[in-house]
Design a protein around this nucleic acid. Structure first.
Length: 382
DNA sequence: GGCAGGGCAGGCTTGGTAGT
DNA sequence: ACTACCAAGCCTGCCCTGCC
């Protein structure tokens, strides 16, 4: 029985970054297998295509459409899809999914890499829409909201399916609307179910949606369920927009009560003394700010991560220790974010606590790929 | 022309409460 | 339990003005 010999590829990941990929069973038969293997070995997020040096065209890079064009030691280049906005960690690698909050990475769930240094479990499905009011559901929503938001706000908001009975009612009402133009005035239970479903879909992306986000969701709702359109409203959905704002406001209160970090940071209890105004110093992601307030990795506490930080200090003194530093820096990302958000430390102090973050390698790898967003450490300048 | 600072209006926050 | 609403006050963006 013939054994396929392994094939080595040089994969160009960026301007100053390339990596060896070894295909132990030879070149895969399909492009999808090849892409998956490259993605796995290079730990790449999102969708991308490959280009290879085509000998028929003076070895210029051409799109790779068939794996059979590759030979041992071939050079391929990774070209990310325009829709993939990759957010890098300090070390230039994509963040593990638990980095969460409003981050601008658009991971493809089917192709997203496994969390390397994270112990956090990735939920592949949104929290139950039918049990939003239950404590357990809210806790999972809190988890979802604070640490598992792995998608950018969608270009087209997808209205989720509501509970079975709600969908049934809407189906009947939509039929009646199409036949006789009858609008539906949803009873409180149905309205609540709709708002619940929309809220849970929204918090998968943002805990603090903007006015235009609400408008977008409301429009998507009446587009999918035209029976819900409001008469006497210019847009046909102004009331839904307002209700959604109330819903999200109340929803954040619930999340606060179950300890969702991204909202508890704004509770009065966490405001400085003498500044106990609800609107004072609200901390939330601004513009492209990413991974705003991630939860600690599963099983970790501030104390345990502090011990990791101390370990980082000693590991940082060793030579040729990049891989260990990378792992430890990944692991302590949430702790750094918490320090930045809660304490707004001076750069000098922060540098003392986290010297590894200021290594040339850390900074240059982020800078050299200026299309990427380095997560914001909002520090006070000295 | 470009920049910085002040004033202003509107939007937004949390916490609390009334009504259903 | 939930939606809707209110209060108090901070934040943000816009506009205007003054200065270089």
């Amino acid at each position: 029985m013939a054994v396929a010999s392994s094939v080595r590829l040089r994969v160009i990941l960026g301007e100053d970054s390339s990596q060896r990929v070894i295909l132990r069973d030879g070149v895969p038969h399909s492009m999808s297998e090849l892409l998956e293997e490259v993605q796995r070995q290079c730990n790449l997020p999102g969708s991308f295509r490959l280009q290879f040096r085509d000998p028929d065209f003076d070895h210029e890079f051409m799109n790779l459409t068939s794996p059979s064009d590759l030979q041992d030691k071939a050079t391929v280049k990774v070209v990310f899809s325009p829709t993939t906005h990759v957010t890098l960690c300090q070390d230039g690698t994509p963040p593990p999914p638990y980095f969460g909050a409003s981050h601008s990475t658009n991971f493809s769930p089917a192709l997203s890499p496994s969390p390397s240094s994270s112990d956090t479990v990735i939920l592949s499905t949104p929290p139950s829409t039918s049990g939003a009011s239950s404590e357990s559901s809210l806790e999972s929503s809190s988890e979802s909201a604070s640490s598992l938001k792995s998608s950018q706000w969608p270009s087209v908001f997808d209205v989720p399916r509501f509970s079975y009975d709600s969908e049934l009612k809407l189906q009947h009402a939509n039929t009646a609307f199409k036949e006789g133009g009858t609008f539906l005035s949803p009873e409180p239970k149905l309205k609540s179910s709709i708002l619940d479903g929309l809220a849970e879909e929204i918090v998968k992306y943002k805990l603090y949606p903007t006015d235009s986000d609400f408008e977008e969701v409301a429009k998507a709702l009446i587009k999918k369920h035209p029976c819900l359109k409001e008469q006497g409203s210019v847009t046909g959905c102004s009331g839904w927009k307002v209700s959604l704002k109330y819903k999200l406001g109340n929803y954040r209160t619930k999340l606060r009560n179950v300890g969702c970090m991204e909202v508890t940071v704004n509770s009065l209890k966490h405001k400085p003394q003498g500044k106990s105004s609800p609107a004072y110093g609200v901390k939330k992601p601004r513009r492209a700010e990413v991974n705003y307030c991630p939860s600690f990795p599963s099983g970790e506490t501030a104390e345990s991560l502090e011990r990791v930080r101390v370990n980082l200090l000693s590991e940082g003194k060793k030579k040729n220790n990049d891989q260990t530093l990378k792992v430890l820096m990944d692991k302590t990302f949430a702790l750094r974010r918490h320090e930045v958000i809660h304490e707004s430390p001076l750069i000098a102090d922060f540098k003392t606590r986290w010297p590894a973050l200021f290594r040339t390698k850390e900074v240059s790898e982020c800078r050299c790929q200026n299309k990427y967003v380095w997560h914001n450490h909002k520090l006070n300048f000295v």
